[in-house]
């Protein structure tokens, strides 16, 4: 593989910067002008070597966000900077160059691998596309299979339908690693797996990250898994970031009421201490017409007049340790009765 300058920007340069990413989908058959605000002004940094967890419920836009980062869906607005280089601009790097360095692992599903291709060919496809000969690509495929714990002679010639869910997901990971990316986006990569297999794959992901200095963007709806694997966590609600911070801070001192509710909704794992009252009621509202002001206010126990009037901003982050939340209660003099005070 043509090595692309391993670390252009230096260790302090975030590997990926997303600024104000936006994607609105037209609603099919809906009222004219009706749009789903799938991703609505999302900004964050991914630092080198970290795992950034992205959590949120269905419809919060986390999967759309993953596809925007690779330009698999064209963003309507916003910009991406990869290791200091703006993506898709003249002075930066092309989308194709980005895809050589950022790979994606999809949720294991019946459609994640080409059913008519032996899995080793699916893995060799990436290197082949990037200019390797078929023989070289085949050799890379064998190497990567070993790396994900599959014996190449045993598994390489198999077709996807002959493999279990866990084995298929290892193949998906192998396919992403075959072109030696610097960053891997894992979109619900372990969600469809059985618990015993999920644990195997999580261990594997950790080992691979360590061995190959990878940076992960780990998207999941499962808070426990995100807590285990992430260094920092980004919480999304209805297309916007509501909270971002180091994993210990998010899980021990959540700042946004939504994060608090999410955490409290996890089953207790202890029949003696069952949850007696739902932490919040109702379903997430439709992203077609999100509530005015703060999107969470319709389900928030602390909602006040100010929450309907102005949209809270996430605030600026300084470094990896910043813990920020888009909530009026976090802003002094925001007009919310529970707003923090500065002394």
């Amino acid at each position: 593989m043509a090595m692309i300058d391993p670390d252009r920007g230096g260790p302090a340069q975030p590997l990926l910067i997303a600024r104000d990413l936006r994607k609105h989908f037209k609603v099919k058959g809906g009222a004219p002008g009706a749009v789903v605000r799938a991703v609505d002004g999302v900004s964050f940094n991914v630092f080198k070597g970290e795992t950034l967890g992205v959590v949120g419920e269905s419809g919060c836009g986390k999967s759309t966000l993953a596809r925007l980062l690779l330009h698999l869906i064209e963003p309507d607005g916003g910009e991406l900077v990869f290791d200091g280089d703006p993506v898709g601009e003249i002075r930066g790097i092309s989308v194709n160059a980005l895809r050589r360095q950022v790979q994606m692992v999809f949720q294991d599903s019946s459609s994640s691998l080409n059913p008519r291709m032996p899995v080793r060919d699916s893995i060799a496809f990436g290197p082949y596309v990037h200019g390797k000969t078929k023989a070289e690509a085949g050799r890379i495929a064998r190497d990567v299979l070993v790396k994900v714990g599959l014996k190449p002679d045993l598994f390489g010639p198999r077709y996807p339908h002959e493999l279990s869910g866990g084995q298929k997901q290892r193949i998906n990971i192998a396919r992403a690693l075959a072109i030696e990316p610097r960053m891997v986006i894992l979109d619900e990569a372990v969600s469809a797996l059985d618990k015993s297999v999920e644990a195997q794959v999580l261990n594997l992901l950790r080992a691979l990250k360590e061995n190959f200095n990878l940076t992960y963007l780990f998207i999941s709806h499962d808070l426990s898994v995100v807590r285990y694997i992430s260094d920092r966590v980004l919480v999304m609600y209805l297309g916007a970031v509501v909270e971002l911070g180091p994993v210990q801070d998010i899980f021990s001192r959540p700042k946004h009421p939504y994060t608090t509710a999410l955490l409290a909704s996890r089953p207790s794992m202890d029949p003696a201490r069952r949850i007696e009252e739902p932490p919040i009621t109702g379903d997430p509202p439709s992203p077609i017409n999100p509530p005015s002001g703060c999107r969470f206010r319709t389900r928030c126990p602390h909602a006040e007049a100010v929450c309907a009037q102005t949209q809270p901003v996430l605030g600026a982050w300084n470094d990896q340790d910043s813990h920020i939340a888009a909530c009026h209660m976090q802003v002094p003099e925001s007009g919310h009765s529970l707003a923090i005070r500065t002394h």
Binding site: E198, Q200, L202, N203, S224, V225, R227, Y228
Partner: peptide, 18 residues
């Protein structure tokens, strides 16, 4: 195997195989 507050610095005690 069920991820629930495991030590982040260690591997999960996964069941091997399928």
């Amino acid at each position: 195997s069920t991820v629930h507050g495991q030590d982040r610095s260690r591997d999960i005690d996964a069941i091997p195989g399928s």
